[in-house]
């Protein structure tokens, strides 16, 4: 997928310009940015006082306090720093499915969130994963890097296996900084999704989970005697489609989605479920805003 415009339309990008990513937690960044940092710094936002010690910058002495109390206090200001935004999105074979296409939808979401981060001078990293993290683009910052970001997102291939646990583990090991992590996947991982999310939770990150399915998965239209082939691992399920089986499948799917949501909610992970027939721009402008990821 090399056509950038296939991912994000210019009109839509303009709409995104007004948005910014919101973190429920405040993190320390590397570079001075446009966000408050835990560090005291040189911004205009007052944070606290402390006693003067020898060697402190005299410019930050509060002379009014000295006049009243005859003691030297130093004014402390909050430092504004950049935010680290990591987007881990699923490029396994199972995403290469559905109408509208699940993989494209996931990339659009990833690209849109990344763009918002870039516009707001956040440090944006992109991690496509399949049986692990298959590629990475780290540390993008500033609107100028948008074409690189879009190019990277577009050219990721779909790979056979899906292993969220390995991908999250690799991410947690390589990236000690804290920040926002957004995981976009269908969560059809036969190894389970819980272990992977647990690795992220251990890093005290602000985690968002976007669960994407296609309408063909939520409302299957298959009929007859079929050999259902898993496009990831060629696993086969022989079924004779009956009303009972379809009902049972839907029931299981509902239960599975509920389980993902419950797992996330209980651990402070923001969870958002969507199907690919929900218009993509609506997802970003409405649902993500409602969930508090952007404002």
């Amino acid at each position: 997928m090399n056509n950038d415009t296939a991912l994000l339309e210019p009109d839509f990008l303009n709409k995104l310009n007004r948005l910014e990513l919101v973190s429920k937690k405040v993190f320390a960044g590397k570079l001075r940015g446009e966000r408050r940092s835990k560090r005291r710094g040189e911004s205009v936002e007052f944070a606290d006082y402390r006693n003067y010690t020898v060697g402190d910058d005299l410019r930050f002495l509060d002379w009014n306090i000295y006049a009243r109390l005859d003691r030297l206090f130093l004014k402390l200001f909050l430092e504004e720093e950049d935010l680290m935004v990591s987007i881990i999105f699923d490029t396994s074979k199972s995403m290469d499915y559905g109408q509208p296409h699940k993989g494209i939808y996931a990339r659009q979401v990833a690209a849109a969130i990344a763009y918002i981060g870039l516009v707001n001078q956040d440090r944006v990293s992109l991690y496509p994963f399949a049986d692990g993290i298959v590629d990475e683009m780290k540390g993008l910052r500033g609107k100028r890097t948008t074409p690189r970001m879009l190019d990277f997102v577009s050219r990721c291939d779909y790979r056979p296996a899906s292993d969220l646990t390995t991908a999250c583990k690799q991410y947690a090991i390589r990236h000690p900084q804290r920040g926002i992590v957004i995981v976009i996947s269908d969560f059809f991982d036969k190894g389970g999704f819980e272990a992977g999310l647990r690795f992220l939770l251990g890093r005290d990150l602000d985690i968002y989970v976007i669960h994407v399915l296609s309408p063909q998965e939520t409302e299957p239209t298959v009929t007859g005697d079929l050999q259902l082939a898993d496009i990831e691992d060629e696993d086969v399920a022989e079924v004779t489609i009956s009303r009972a089986l379809i009902n049972r499948y839907k029931h299981n799917l509902e239960a599975y989605c509920a389980h993902v949501r419950d797992y996330c909610t209980r651990r402070g992970i923001a969870h958002l479920f969507t199907t690919t027939d929900v218009p993509f721009d609506q997802l970003i402008l409405n649902y993500l805003r409602r969930r508090g990821l952007v404002r």
Partner: peptide, 11 residues
């Protein structure tokens, strides 16, 4: 049976 590709046989 007719072969039919799906995203996952999990469910």
């Amino acid at each position: 049976r007719q072969k039919y590709a799906i995203s996952s046989t999990l469910l």
